[in-house]
């Protein structure tokens, strides 16, 4: 064979030793500039009074003043903790109200997501073959849909006078068979005035539920697929009913995913912003009934122009999320 003439290899601009560091560096560079630095800076800002636009030299030292201002604890009569008046007083303070709203919407939207998603996933997993992908895609569709667009549609649907939802609900409520309305107890027979402030958090919670129930179903389905089939076969040999199989095999095997999915919901719902923001046109609703903490924070920054206080809100909220996540870890995390 002819020896092939070998050219001098090009000098490497990237040695084997340094290449990996170069390859992973983009993330760290971007995170340092757009993540870490601003975060640290906001800790610093939270100790000052500052409008965010004037030069840094105009910042006024506040110490923990911003934090105290946000917490607004003065004037609360702690001896009356067990009275309704005390909690009404707490609710009238912006930060606490936003926190309450966030938690309320988080629970009312979050809990049903999982209570419905788990049986739904089990049912789709065991019963559907060919239609399965189609059904799943339908449930998943809301998750990938632009929030603003779909929320605008929901606003139309929820209108009191002409809303589709009212028509549908009263339609079902008034539906009669032989002079008897079977659904009249569960469904309204008169149009509901969705514009009333008491209804706003419910609407927000519904939209949030609607957006994420499919996502959770998909998560649980994925986990179901990893459960070994022979577990069920063994149970069937032992004569276990489907219900007992669900309780004794499915649920325990799903536990890691339940933990994961609930954690995602928890973190996600505590930073809820888009849905309530668009549903209330950025106002938080009449009396800020649906103003979440993230919305409150942004209002303080953009409307009040008080970036120091807004940063303080962010960090108080962060501590709160960290606390809840920690508690969630203690309670739900599967021990192994």
């Amino acid at each position: 064979m002819q020896p092939t003439e070998r050219n001098r290899p090009r000098k490497r601009w990237l040695s084997k030793k340094w290449a990996p560091y170069v390859f992973v560096s983009p993330f760290f560079i971007l995170f340092a500039i757009f993540g870490l630095f601003p975060l640290l800076f906001s800790v610093y800002v939270s100790l000052f009074r500052w409008d965010g636009v004037s030069p840094l030299s105009q910042m006024k030292w506040e110490g923990f003043g911003n934090y105290l201002y946000v917490l607004e604890l003065e004037g609360l009569d702690f001896r009356t903790v067990f009275t309704q008046a005390f909690w009404q007083d707490v609710y009238s303070r912006d930060f606490w109200r936003s926190l309450y709203n966030t938690l309320w919407i988080g629970v009312v939207a979050g809990l049903p997501q999982h209570l419905i998603a788990i049986p739904l996933a089990v049912f789709i997993h065991t019963q559907f073959r060919r239609a399965r992908n189609g059904i799943l895609a339908i449930y998943f569709l809301p998750f990938i849909t632009q929030t603003v667009a779909i929320v605008l549609v929901f606003q139309a649907l929820f209108s009191a006078k002409f809303g589709v939802i009212n028509s549908l609900l009263t339609g079902i409520g008034q539906w009669e068979v032989a002079g008897f309305a079977p659904f009249s107890l569960m469904f309204p027979t008169e149009p509901v005035d969705w514009a009333r402030p008491q209804k706003t958090p419910w609407i927000v919670a519904f939209v949030v539920w609607w957006r994420y129930v499919g996502w959770n179903t998909v998560l649980y389905l994925a986990a179901l697929q990893t459960i070994p089939k022979d577990l069920y076969e063994a149970a069937r040999v032992d004569g276990a009913s489907p219900w007992r199989q669900f309780v004794h095999i499915t649920l325990p095997q799903l536990r890691p995913m339940i933990f994961f999915a609930v954690t995602l919901t928890l973190i996600g719902n505590l930073q809820l912003f888009e849905e309530p923001y668009v549903l209330t046109a950025g106002t938080g609703g009449i009396g800020q009934v649906a103003e979440t903490s993230a919305m409150y924070m942004l209002r303080v920054a953009m409307t009040d122009g008080d970036f120091g206080t807004a940063s303080a809100v962010a960090w108080l909220l962060f501590m709160f999320v960290a606390l809840l996540t920690w508690m969630n870890n203690r309670v739900l995390k599967p021990k192994d």
Binding site: T4, E5, R6, N7, R8, P9, R10
Partner: peptide
């Protein structure tokens, strides 16, 4: 990758 011309390759 060692820079050998196409024809020769």
């Amino acid at each position: 990758m060692s820079g050998v011309a196409k024809a020769e390759r």
